[in-house]
């Protein structure tokens, strides 16, 4: 691939004006993202990142290219300040700057040389290399575990919030009820209070 320096520089700029969103609901689509961000900046392109090997119920992630790096920064700081909801509540989305490695279609770095070599068992480094390999495996298991933990916690938090919401809902219903059957009015009369109903 004759990836020239200019192509790479252009790509770097594209990365600069791209925002990475995660914790997106699976119902979020490109048009939802576009409408959501329309109020802040012009959306040039949207790309959802596929989840090939992660846990299957991970939230969606997307790369959204805006019209300028400045706008990208604004959007990120805005979403950092206020919880921003898309296609549901109360779980907010998160935004951060995109990194080059988030693009699967990135051009190759110009002038990079990759070298590789096979280590033989006789090589003094072979044992160390084995160790490194095991470490890689261990680390990926650790990461998987954290994923699992996080998803469990999220489940828990969602459950808890649901319960809270139900309690609130009950309260509202009760208030609604006493307003409807004039209990509130009777009580007000009894305690000699004024009640203003709209």
């Amino acid at each position: 691939m004759g990836s020239s320096a200019e192509e790479y520089a252009a790509f770097e700029q594209r990365v600069g004006r791209t925002v990475y969103f995660d914790n997106l609901s699976p119902q979020v689509t490109e048009s939802v993202l576009r409408t959501a961000l329309d109020q802040f900046a012009t959306v040039k392109s949207v790309k959802f990142l596929p989840n090939y090997i992660g846990p299957s119920n991970l939230p969606q992630c997307a790369l959204v290219e805006l019209d300028s790096a400045k706008k990208a920064k604004e959007v990120i700081s805005m979403i950092g300040q206020y919880p921003f909801m898309m296609s549901g509540m109360p779980r907010p989305v998160r935004a951060r700057h995109a990194e080059m490695e988030m693009f699967d279609d990135r051009p190759r770095k110009p002038n990079r040389k990759i070298k590789c070599s096979w280590l033989e068992p006789s090589d003094p480094n072979f044992q160390v290399a084995k160790e490194l390999k095991n470490l890689t495996r261990k680390h990926s298991l650790e990461i998987q575990f954290v994923h699992k933990l996080q998803l469990e916690e999220e489940e828990k938090l969602a459950k808890q919030q649901e319960d809270t919401l139900k309690v609130h809902y009950k309260k509202f219903k009760m208030i609604d009820g006493i307003m409807a059957d004039k209990t509130a009015h009777r009580l007000a009369r009894k305690y000699n209070l004024r009640i203003t109903d709209e």
Binding site: P26, Q27, N51, S56, G88, P90, K115, L119, L132, E154
Partner: peptide, 27 residues
């Protein structure tokens, strides 16, 4: 071994199953 001392490891690839589109915990 790659240039900077990385050792490539390989496992059988398993794709994750598509998640539940309807439910999103936290909404």
């Amino acid at each position: 071994s790659l240039g900077d001392g990385r050792i490539v490891s390989a496992t059988k690839g398993t794709l994750s199953k598509p998640g539940n589109k309807e439910k999103f915990s936290g909404h």
